[in-house]
Design a protein around this nucleic acid. Structure first.
Lengths: 252, 252
DNA sequence: CGTGCATTTGACCACCTTCAATAAAGGTGG
DNA sequence: CCACCTTTATTGAAGGTGGTCAAATGCACG
């Protein structure tokens, strides 16, 4: 059992209005305040964001938005893990990415979300109306610049993922994934050095890497037998030979 | 032989200074002026871009930038086709995309290009210093907004490509590719209805779809035998049964 | 007409998938 | 807290899609 899955006791779904002094203060301790779009705003400007945003607490395995659905909100993740995915008509699924605290999602085109988003763990989200955020761009150009920077970074990561999906072997894919997830794990509290936090299922990993569950499981076993990782207590994996792992991930 | 490959007689590589009345006028007929970032500027503002940009004419098969190289310029494509790619140390290559007139590339992070760019055909490029374009953002916020919009669209296309690479079969991949390339072909002049312009090699297509040349070739043959396409005069393919092609592309 | 490169086609092979069985983990109610 | 059931993960065996290797064909260009 993992403390990160238990942010607080999560009822079924709650919303908390933030247009109050108290909630402006909550921005001060928010992870997104440090890295997401809100990071570019000064302390005396942040109330403009908190006044239009709402905090959502949601239990695991819920859907927050579906591909194609009208896009009204941007979401900052404050706690928990979200998976972003696209699916083909017959159900084949590609997970675009796993998002952790400080990351945001919800940008859409033609008013429709490009992907579905679901909670892997219990999640605390900060929900912001897209149109209001965009309206703030004229007064705070730095908000737009930050969003461009984040989108550009996202694009780069996605292009790297194209290389992975198109040209890497199953083993290389899993190693790359573990390296990437360790980077994200570092941002989280209470994660031991050399440990990777993997709250998602084998099926999620498979659908992210363009493989089947079985292949993912087999590769995990092989990496374990080779002494590169240690499959200890779920949902964690320990990296024993980081140098070797990176070597495989980069394609020898 | 294809007229589109022969924009003009291209020496080895030429540059043309645009800080003159004549060149401002050339913006008026430029395709990028209609769709790329310059499209948001008024006629009386465009000289600010043309004064800092240079027109490059380059012959086919040349490299314009390499992955990791210091990024100083953004490039608008005025004529021709460019391929954007990433490679693994052992040479395995993933082509991120093929760019046509009106599209731009060169956005980078940490000052290094994320990918390599090479000319597939003879190309005419409009070269703009990145820092000067970014400096214009404060005076013309709409430039930044347009760039965000383009980057966002690019991100969406790349995410679609993830679904293709991770979850589609060889046949579905090629059909999706043909559909996408037909959309791009429509923007070009002198392309017949239902014809797709494919200036790139089989090897380029393979590296874009995560396949081998042989598989791409075989799938072309199959689509031809099934009467879905007609492999006529290079570098063109005719679509005979668009409905069927789209059906396969979307995953049945 | 001959050389060189790209593409097509064929035969065989391998990596990953599919199918199937077992084991482990998680959730619910008594 | 444990029995029971469901879900998820692991492992094994067999099969297929796409890859590898090799040869043939086509095409551009001198």
């Amino acid at each position: 059992m993992n403390s990160m899955n238990e942010i607080r006791s999560v009822p079924n779904s709650t919303q908390e209005d933030r247009s109050c002094e108290l909630c402006v203060n909550s921005c001060k301790t928010c992870i997104s305040r440090q890295v997401s779009i809100c990071s570019v705003l000064e302390d005396n400007e942040i109330h403009l964001v908190s006044s239009i945003s709402k905090i959502n607490l949601k239990p695991a395995k819920q859907v927050i938005c579906n591909e194609g659905e009208t896009a009204n909100y941007l979401y900052n993740i404050n706690h928990g893990c979200v998976r972003i995915s696209k699916t083909l008509p017959d159900g084949r699924r590609q997970i675009i990415g796993f998002l952790f605290p400080g990351e945001f999602f919800g940008l859409a085109r033609d008013n429709g979300y490009d992907y579905s988003a679901e909670f892997i763990t219990n999640v605390e989200l900060c929900q912001m109306p897209i149109n209001k955020i965009f309206a703030m761009f004229s007064k705070f150009p730095k908000l737009g610049h930050k969003m461009l920077e984040i989108t550009r970074t996202e694009l780069q990561i996605t292009q790297d993922q194209m290389l992975l999906l198109g040209r890497k072997t199953a083993k290389e894919k899993l190693c790359s994934f573990l390296i990437a997830m360790q980077q994200k794990s570092k941002q989280l509290k209470d994660i031991k050095e050399n440990h990777v936090y993997l709250p998602m299922s084998r099926s999620d990993i498979a659908d992210h890497l363009g493989l089947t569950i079985e292949t993912v499981s087999r590769q995990f076993t092989i990496l374990g037998k080779d002494g590169i990782i240690s499959l200890g207590e779920n949902p964690f994996v320990e990296i024993l030979d980081r140098k070797h792992l990176k070597l495989i991930a980069s394609g020898e």
